[in-house]
Structure formats: C-alpha cells, structure tokens
Design a protein around this nucleic acid. Structure first.
Lengths: 340, 340
DNA sequence: CTGAAAGCGCTTACAG
DNA sequence: CTGAAAGCGCTTACAG
C-alpha cells in the first residue's frame, strides 16, 4: 500500500504539503494541487485511517450504542428504524458506524464496553438509553465524548418521541368516539420511561374530558401478547361494561383482541381496542389496529445531525419528535354513544 | 488520559515491558506483572486503540457488510437475525463491529465504501453478498482482507442456507399430503440466487415423485404481497383444478391466500399454500403459514467463527446451514387424496 | 505557499 | 527477562 511519503516523492513535494492538499486546508497553489492529485491517482494512494486517527485525534467513527437489555434488540423494528435514519447521515459526512451493544444490567455495564469508550476510538456517540434501571451514559460523560441520547435519560443533547402526546391522542380518540367506559392495560412503573410518559398523556386526556383518573379500570401487563390476553380477561370479567381498551403497546393490544373474541366480544363493534407503536403486524392483523406511530427514522436522523453539529462546536437544541395517530379498524363509535 | 509511558514510569519499567505484560506475551516475571498491573490500576490506563492499530497493524475491527440493495435493509428480519449471531462472537473475541452498508448498483459500489475497505481500518469482513447483478467482494479481495461471505457469490469462505433442500421439502410435503395439481409462484431468474436454488429443489422433488417439471403451472411475482395476489389470481383462473401453491417467499404466499379467499377458495380446505422464510407474520396470520425456516443467527455465528479462524491462520471449511420445514395451518391433505 | 521536524501512543525486532 | 530505539503513517505548529 502506498503511503503519503510515496505520493510526496512522486509529486516532488513534502508530505506536509500532500497532507494539506488532501485535507482541504487553504494553503496551496493550484499547480501544487494538480501535482499532488496526479501523484495520488498514479499511486492509488488511500489514507490509512488508523494513522490519521492517531495524528489528528479524530477517528471518523461514531459509536451507536444500543444496550443489550433484552434478546430482541436486533429484531426490534423501532431500534432498526432508528438505525435506518442514522446511517445515511453518517455516510454523508464520511463517518463510519461502530455498532456497540453493551450488556446492561442493574450492576452496570460490561468491561468491554468501558474499554471501548475509553479507547479513543470514537469521536461521538448516539445512544439509545431509555431504561430506568441503568444507563450507558456515565462512562461516555466521564470520557468527555460528545453524545446525543435517544431516550429519557438526561444528558446535554436529547431526542425523544412525544409519548405523552401519543397517550393523550389515544384517549382523546376514544372519547371522541363516545366511549366513556375505558379500561387501561399498562405496565409496571419504573420499567420503561416511554410507558410512563404514555400513561401521563392518557391520564391528562382523561382529566381534560372530565373523567376521574383513579376510577379507570387498569390491569398490568409486561408488553407481551400473552400478558395482553390475561389483562383483557381480567378487565372484561371485572368490568363487563367496558367499551374500549387502551393498551400501552401493540402486542398487548393484539393479545387483548384475541381474548375479547374468545369471551364473545366483537372488535370493534362491542369493544374498541387501541395500541401503541404501529408495529408491522398492526396493519396486517384482523381487525387492523388503531395505534400511535412514532417516526423512528426521523429520530435517528435528528440525533445524528445534532451529533455532527456538536462535533462542529455548536450547541443544538434537544428535539421532541411528533407522533401520529393511525386510525384503523379496531376502533369505532360506541354503540348508541353520542359523537362529540 | 494516561499513556503507556505514564504506566511505565509509575511501575519503574520500560514501555516495552508494559506492552508485553498487557499483550500477554510470555516474557516477564510474576513480580514485573504485579508492578505493571498495579500501575495500570493506579493510573486508570486504557490502551489507545488507534495507536495500537497503527503499531501492530491490527484494528480489532471486523466489518459487517450489508449492501444497500433496497430500502428495507434495516428492517429485513433475516439480515438482523444474522447480525444477532455475529455480535456475540465478536464481542467475545474483543472485536468491534463496523457496520458497512455500501450502495450497490449495477455500476458497482460507492466511493466511500472503496475508501473504507482500503483504509486499513478493518481486520476482517463478514459480507452478505447475494444478489446476482453486483458484488461487494472485489475490493475486499483486491485489498486482501480476510472475508467470509454469507450468500452465493463465490469466495474462499462461505456460509449458505440450504435453500435447495428447503424447496425440496416444500414440494415433498405437498406430495405427501396427496397433492398432484400444484402451482408455483416464483420470481424472475437472475434476480436472487436463493430463489434460484429454492426452485431447483422444488423441481428435483417434483421429478423424484414422477411429475413433469415443464407442466407445473407457474406465475412470476416479485416477492411482494400484491404480486402474490396477482399470481394467484392468474394461476387459479387458468388452472381451476390446482389444489396447492408453492410460493418462493412468505409475503407472496400471504398475498396468494388473500386472493384465493376472494375467489371463493378456502385455505387450506380447498387450497394448500406454502411459503418460504418464516417471517414473524407467518405464525400470526390466519391461517398460519406452512413454510421453511432458515437459521439466520446460526449463519451469522458460523460466519464469524470462520472469520476468526481465518484470522488465526486456519482454513475452515465452508458451511451449509440446514433449514427446517414448519408445518402450520395453511396446508392439509388433499380432499379425497391418498396419503402416501 | 512550502517543508523540516516533532509527535500522536503504541509494538516489535534486537541486543543485552 | 528487560529496555533502548526505531517505526507504524499521518498531522500540525513553526519557521521561512
């Protein structure tokens, strides 16, 4: 492999000059540039990134930190759509993506992660740090690497999805359809920041329409389909007069629909059900599911742009990404209810 | 950040010695090691990877090359399950994953990809190189980086899914259920290597059971749900006596089921339908889909192990990963047919 | 505008 | 077993 020195010799200039031409400093004449570029062509020179990284203190690598909090990390569509937004921005800036998946437990992060963060290999980080029991941010802060977090853990630069408004819209949608007897399938508190925000939104909308938050029948699932079934069974048995269910994610909603059917309740004619996330199955299930879609690629894109702006010495504002209510077949006006 | 020299000074030895202790060469006494390790502790030393890469010629980075052949790259479950198998192996070996997504067109790969490959940043590569019209392997070969390919493009080390056997099993399954009038929904040749192999398997099984391959009614889709619908409409109109359809992927199979229903054919009572891939929806659709599952995480794992073995100077054998027939509700014995 | 030289932080023959 | 020294391939003040 040819080095800078080979190019310099061939062009009849010093390595310093070649370096300057190649890194687009303004200090050279057109004729020098031509000589250098010709030599680059002829030698097939390509910069050695590790050498450049050592000398310049920049690696052109951004770390994308997806903590390994559960097995499904690589198949979670949300995470992947975020990556989909990150990749083109990095590519465009000539940056490479190092995929970092620390094992995150209540006792902290793993050793390999710590080493990597402190290794000088990474110019900036986009983290997906959003579980209450632990954070990946601390070693990053300590090392002083610029970081943008997608999630609710607090740092200087953040991108969040508007979970609160999503929850608000779901409740509002059901109220507008005339529903008054609404059950909730949520999850245990302190399990997930987004879920907490969603619930706050649901409650705010309930209060805004004059409902008493305390009296909303509630069951607690764990995001899984089966927990949705169990919760629906519980709620519908205890409160047969319910006309609608708000589920904190789509998978529980799909489980709830299955269970409602089993108990002889048609969806949506006798029971409206809403979910959250707009997973692919939500558009393909029967009935299709009314839900909230967040713009994950946009979150990735915004986070990456923020990171580059930080790397350029600016201090961008944090971003709240809007969500969208997707009305499908699983909700309808309450029978005999009055539309507002 | 403390450097090797800081550690050496504090331990009262040379940097060469510290380096030897840290890289586990056998050339030091226990007492030296203790001194060094204590100094490492006290200084909080962490090796600078770029410096190490430059000096040692190893970066501890493996590139995972997923060519950007279509938008869905980040949401294709198959790709992600492969990544799921790659990550733990790399992590275990102390290697980091650089995610490389070259834009692949008939005119070749993009410039940024070429630079990266030739940059000296990457010790080894796992590629997912499997579309007939272009390959990402050539620049890798040219640069001489060890590479394992997951797919049908030829290189020294390869991992493939046994598409052929998958196709064979689907046909065999239908024949065993007594089906004799079987339609095929395939895709255009030269579009996808895996699809070609699947078809070869289907044909081989057909011949093995005495069918004439030429007479199999066939329609050509493009992997999409809607193309599955169109193909089913075509086939069932032209050949009303068909009792089963083999579709080269699940999405076309799901489309075919929809269309069959619309045309008044119950699945599976009046028409058995099989797919290929076992996408998540295959287990959740109505009816659930009989299909072929390939073990993507295993493919990722095998490829990574092969790569590390190549990096260690060995020459591992290529791997053919077995597939599995998943029998679900969309297939049943032909009415009045004789089970063999 | 150009170049000589130091230096980024490590590893690795080599000599002892 | 240990260390002095060269070198990996680049960038960056600095002097001219």
């Amino acid at each position: 492999m040819p080095t800078l020195e080979d190019v310099a010799r061939k062009a009849g200039v010093s390595t310093a000059t070649v370096s300057k031409v190649l890194s687009n400093t303004p200090y050279f004449t057109a004729s020098t540039r031509d000589k250098v570029m010709r030599a680059v062509e002829e030698t097939g020179y390509m910069p050695h990134l590790a050498a450049r990284a050592l000398a310049a203190g920049r690696t052109c690598i951004v770390g994308v930190v997806f903590p390994w909090v559960y097995d499904g990390i690589f198949t979670d569509p949300h995470i992947l759509h975020i990556l989909e937004g990150i990749e083109p921005e990095c590519s465009q800036h000539g940056y490479n993506i190092l995929l970092i998946t620390p094992r995150l437990t209540t006792s902290g992060v793993d050793e390999h992660y710590l080493q990597l963060i402190r290794s000088g290999y990474i110019d900036g980080i986009i983290a997906l740090d959003n579980v209450p029991f632990a954070s990946v941010l601390e070693p990053i802060h300590k090392k002083g690497i610029p970081v943008v977090n997608i999630g609710y853990h607090v740092t200087s630069y953040m991108v969040r999805s508007d979970d609160y408004t999503g929850g608000y819209q779901l409740m509002q949608h059901l109220v507008a359809l005339g529903h008054g007897e609404i059950g909730i399938i949520d999850v245990q508190p302190d399990l997930n920041y987004s879920a907490e925000e969603r619930m706050k939104g649901v409650y705010a909308a309930a209060e805004a329409s004059g409902m008493s938050v305390e009296s909303l029948p509630t069951a607690r699932g764990d995001f899984s389909v089966t927990s949705g079934e169990a919760c629906a069974a519980d709620l519908l048995a205890r409160h047969p007069n319910l006309t609608a269910l708000i589920c904190l994610n789509d998978r529980m909603a799909l489980g709830a629909i299955q269970q409602a059917r089993r108990m002889g309740r048609q969806v949506p004619q006798q029971l409206s059900v809403v979910g959250f996330d707009d997973i692919p199955l939500a558009a393909a299930s029967d009935p299709t599911l009314t839900t909230i879609r967040s713009d994950a690629p946009r979150m990735g894109r915004e986070a990456t742009r923020m990171l580059f702006s930080v790397l350029n010495g600016q201090t961008p504002d944090s971003v709240l990404c809007p969500v969208q209510l997707i009305v499908r077949q699983s909700t309808t006006a309450v029978k005999g209810g009055c539309l507002t």
